[in-house]
Simulated scan of single mutants.
Amino acid sequence: MTLLNEVLERPLDLGYAAASEARRQGTARPATPVRRGLTFLLALVLGLTAVWAARELRTPAGVETASDVLVAQIRERSATGEELMAQNTALRGEIAELQEQALGTEAEELLELTERIGSAVGTTAVEGPGMVVTLSDSASANSGEPDAEYGRVRDVDLQLVVNGLWASGAEAIAVNGHRLTAQTAIRTAGDAILVDLQPMISPYRIEAIGDPDGMRTQFARTQAAGFLNFLAAQASISSSVERADELRLAAGTSLAPSLVTESS
């Protein structure tokens, strides 16, 4: 209550009250140009210091944003995944050689059939001509501008393009080097797109092996081609469709048969 009474009865600070009384009695020190200049400089320095402190508090130097940390983790995990995929491919090659040695020439037809089936389902590395479709997030989304999430490539965008390539006659497809199989899923987890649980980041390079000329002609007639134009016009998501004379797609994850157990 004492503080409230003091504020209500004497709202003017004691220092201001004394200065006002001195001016009223004519005993106040005169405001010379030098004093005014020093006061102005002091106020300017204090103002600049306050602005600098506010900016430093708002954007601390050297502190990464959550998006930067996520992208760095995705790149690190992607590099690790690529190394493991390369090791897996090498092991598959060794297994194939051991199978040939064990079965001999009598099982050449069986080995050829196994290779054709593996190529179709995505568990065998393939190479040949084809086409490449690339999608990239918009410049505003890459710079982290507010309300720019609509400029990011979504999982449904990749799904539509991949389905369009399959419909155009693609024999094998990979997204950012990850081979698609019959069980591959393209989903979103936060800001990242997962292809068979592997995180992908922009730009998204979709490679498809097949007849380049026939695929480009058929792809231009699909819904995916028109959708790419829509993304460019409405969300500034850039895309390109290019012919590739030689592509090599690594083998995908082997399909594990499901085990069914009977309970008594």
Results as ranks from 00 to 15, higher is better:
residue 154 R to E: 11
residue 50 A to P: 00
residue 48 L to W: 03
residue 88 N to I: 12
residue 247 L to S: 03
residue 93 G to L: 10
residue 108 E to D: 15
residue 254 S to V: 12
residue 166 W to I: 02
residue 252 G to N: 00
residue 107 A to P: 02
residue 29 R to Y: 05
residue 197 L to C: 01
residue 186 I to R: 08
residue 89 T to W: 09
residue 224 A to H: 03
residue 166 W to V: 03
residue 140 S to C: 02
residue 30 P to V: 05
residue 200 M to L: 08
residue 158 L to G: 07
residue 157 D to A: 04
residue 189 A to M: 14
residue 108 E to G: 07
residue 143 S to C: 00
residue 62 G to A: 07
residue 85 M to C: 01
residue 16 Y to P: 04
residue 185 A to N: 11
residue 240 S to Q: 09
residue 76 E to Q: 15
residue 84 L to N: 06
residue 130 G to F: 08
residue 59 T to D: 15
residue 168 S to K: 05
residue 228 L to D: 02
residue 188 T to K: 07
residue 120 A to P: 00
residue 144 G to V: 04
residue 42 L to M: 13
residue 162 V to N: 04
residue 13 D to G: 07
residue 20 S to L: 15
residue 50 A to L: 06
residue 94 E to V: 09
residue 79 A to L: 12
residue 160 L to N: 13
residue 93 G to V: 02
residue 192 A to M: 07
residue 45 V to C: 13
residue 63 V to Q: 14
residue 87 Q to K: 14
residue 193 I to T: 02
residue 257 P to A: 13
residue 186 I to F: 04
residue 113 L to V: 04
residue 170 A to D: 06
residue 170 A to C: 03
residue 94 E to N: 07
residue 121 V to I: 10
residue 53 A to E: 10
residue 207 E to P: 05
residue 110 L to F: 10
residue 34 V to D: 12
residue 259 L to W: 01
residue 226 G to D: 12
residue 67 S to T: 11
residue 214 G to T: 08
residue 61 A to T: 14
residue 8 L to F: 08
residue 153 V to F: 03
residue 95 I to P: 01
residue 40 F to M: 11
residue 223 Q to E: 14
residue 44 L to H: 05
residue 25 Q to V: 15
residue 182 A to P: 02
residue 131 M to N: 09
residue 16 Y to G: 11
residue 52 W to K: 04
residue 254 S to A: 13
residue 65 T to V: 03
residue 101 Q to A: 13
residue 250 A to G: 09
residue 153 V to I: 12
residue 139 A to C: 03
residue 88 N to L: 11
residue 175 V to S: 05
residue 75 R to V: 09
residue 189 A to G: 08
residue 196 D to W: 01
residue 7 V to E: 10
residue 65 T to Q: 02
residue 186 I to K: 06
residue 164 G to N: 02
residue 71 V to R: 14
residue 4 L to R: 12
residue 163 N to P: 03
residue 164 G to A: 02
residue 9 E to L: 14
residue 105 T to C: 00
residue 88 N to R: 15
residue 37 G to N: 14
residue 38 L to R: 12
residue 81 G to V: 01
residue 212 P to I: 01
residue 255 L to Q: 11
residue 189 A to R: 08
residue 107 A to I: 00
residue 126 V to L: 07
residue 57 L to P: 08
residue 15 G to R: 10
residue 244 A to H: 04
residue 20 S to T: 08
residue 51 V to L: 15
residue 93 G to Y: 11
residue 123 T to S: 05
residue 135 L to M: 10
residue 24 R to H: 14
residue 106 E to N: 07
residue 155 D to P: 01
residue 136 S to C: 00
residue 203 P to D: 01
residue 19 A to S: 11
residue 225 A to N: 10
residue 40 F to R: 14
residue 102 A to I: 06
residue 122 G to Y: 02
residue 105 T to S: 15
residue 168 S to G: 07
residue 34 V to L: 15
residue 123 T to K: 03
residue 38 L to H: 09
residue 121 V to C: 00
residue 120 A to L: 15
residue 244 A to K: 08
residue 38 L to M: 11
residue 29 R to D: 08
residue 1 M to Q: 13
residue 191 D to I: 08
residue 110 L to W: 11
residue 86 A to C: 00
residue 40 F to N: 08
residue 180 L to R: 05
residue 20 S to G: 09
residue 258 S to Q: 04
residue 143 S to D: 14
residue 140 S to E: 14
residue 117 I to K: 09
residue 48 L to V: 12
residue 182 A to F: 14
residue 11 P to M: 13
residue 217 T to R: 13
residue 230 F to K: 14
residue 106 E to K: 10
residue 10 R to V: 06
residue 20 S to M: 12
residue 106 E to R: 11
